[in-house]
Simulated assay, not measured.
Amino acid sequence: MENSELEKSKTFIIVEILEYIPNSVVIKTILRKTTGNVNVVSFDSGEAMTEKTSPFDTFIQVIEGKAEVIIEDKANILDTGQSIIIPAHSRNTIKANVRFKMISTVIKSGYEDLV
């Protein structure tokens, strides 16, 4: 897995920076900062991320294909162009019934005011 950011001030086509790899979930970092990160992720058909929880909200946007995003046992089907926010501290998993690509954005700052 590559953790380096993309080159700044250089244009790119988001769906083309990451390929599908058979039987894999592939993650490419767009930006990684202490205050949050942006990744593009490709899922081959039949693949899934392990169920997890995060202390931060996570914004998911499908950029190609169709994803199943399960939040607290409720399934949400997202088509290309659709988005969802996974609330902080919610059990969630992301599944590929068909292959798809998505952008995942986590912003870690701003939670200080909620304490």
Rank of each mutant, 00 (worst) to 15 (best):
R99W: 02
T93P: 03
T29G: 02
I60Q: 00
I86E: 00
F100Q: 05
S45D: 00
V62D: 05
A75G: 11
T29A: 07
S90T: 14
F100R: 09
E51H: 07
H89K: 15
A88K: 06
I27R: 10
I107F: 11
I84F: 06
A88C: 06
N39S: 13
E5W: 08
R32G: 00
T93F: 10
P87F: 02
T34N: 15
N92V: 14
D73P: 07
G81S: 05
V62A: 01
Q61Y: 05
Y20I: 14
I30V: 10
M49P: 07
L6D: 11
M1Q: 11
A75E: 15
V25C: 06
S9H: 15
K66G: 03
T34W: 13
S4T: 13
M1V: 06
K8V: 04
T35K: 12
D73H: 09
F43P: 09
D44I: 00
A67S: 06
S90A: 15
F43R: 03
V26R: 15
T35I: 13
Q61H: 10
E19G: 07
N76W: 05
K66V: 02
K28S: 05
G81P: 09
G46W: 01
E72C: 07
S109M: 11
N92H: 15
N39D: 08
K101R: 07
S54E: 02
T105M: 12
I71V: 09
I17D: 07
E112Q: 09
G81I: 05
V25D: 04
M49T: 13
E51N: 10
V38Q: 08
I14W: 03
T53H: 10
T80F: 10
Y111C: 02
I107Y: 12
D113C: 08
G65M: 00
A48G: 10
S24K: 09
V115G: 15
D73Q: 10
I94E: 00
V26F: 07
E47W: 08
E19A: 12
I30H: 01
K66M: 01
K28A: 02
R99Q: 11
A88I: 03
A67I: 01
N92F: 13
S45V: 08
I107L: 10
K74R: 12
I84L: 11
E112R: 03
V115N: 14
I77D: 12
V62E: 00
E68G: 08
K108Q: 03
F12D: 05
V106M: 12
P22M: 01
I60Y: 00
A48T: 07
E2T: 06
Y111A: 05
D113W: 06
T80W: 07
K8L: 12
T80V: 07
S42Q: 02
S104M: 14
V106K: 07
K10N: 09
